[in-house]
Amino acid sequence: MLCSLKRGTLKNVSNMPTIPQDDAFVLNEVKNACKNIFKCMQCGVCSGSCPSGRHTSLNIRKLVRKAAKTADVLHDEQLWMCTTCYNCQERCPRNIDIVDAVLMIRKVAVHEGIMHSEHRKVSELLLEHGHAVPIDKDNREKRIKLGLNELPETVHKYAEELEEVKILLTSCGFDRLLNRAGKKDAGSEEI
């Protein structure tokens, strides 16, 4: 399934306790998520505008075509090379919301248990601290040196406010979503 991936960069968690989904179901999910992709005439304005495509293997035109055809797009490493700069979406002559579609395809992928380990770590930081980038020792010191409070006026300073964020994320099932995406680090599984 993950033959298009560089070994060790993404993790397939098919061995985790998830409900197996057949490709038709997933393709339907992708199609529902980005209906207007089917308007694409493959003109290539998108890939010509793509800053990531200048330097990486991302070909957004081909990715859009793939998304319209097959659920394999969920396993395509290119899906995660988009910086969401919106150039392609701004310039598409058919007004396809390309970046919005990329975000929605990613969402289907994550819900299928496909997630970069780094993204899972960032998500765990949000769950634990309410910040995707929490404070560290160096920056506590920098804050004091600048004359700021050691902790910012955020959930870092107010425990009861952090508890609210945790309740929200748990209510939404965000913690269960991460558990579904497995607990092993990228590269530790056979792909």
Binding site: T83, T84, V102, L103, M104, R106, K107, V110, H111, M115, H119, V122, S123, L126, G130, H131, A132, V133, E153, T154, V155, K157, Y158, E160, E161, L162, E164, V165, C172, G173, F174, L177
Partner: peptide, 16 residues
């Protein structure tokens, strides 16, 4: 006071 991560659009929005 008590604000959290926004949460970051490029990652969390596309996760869930």
């Amino acid at each position: 006071e008590g604000a959290s991560c926004c949460p970051a659009p490029g990652v969390f929005r596309s996760f869930d």
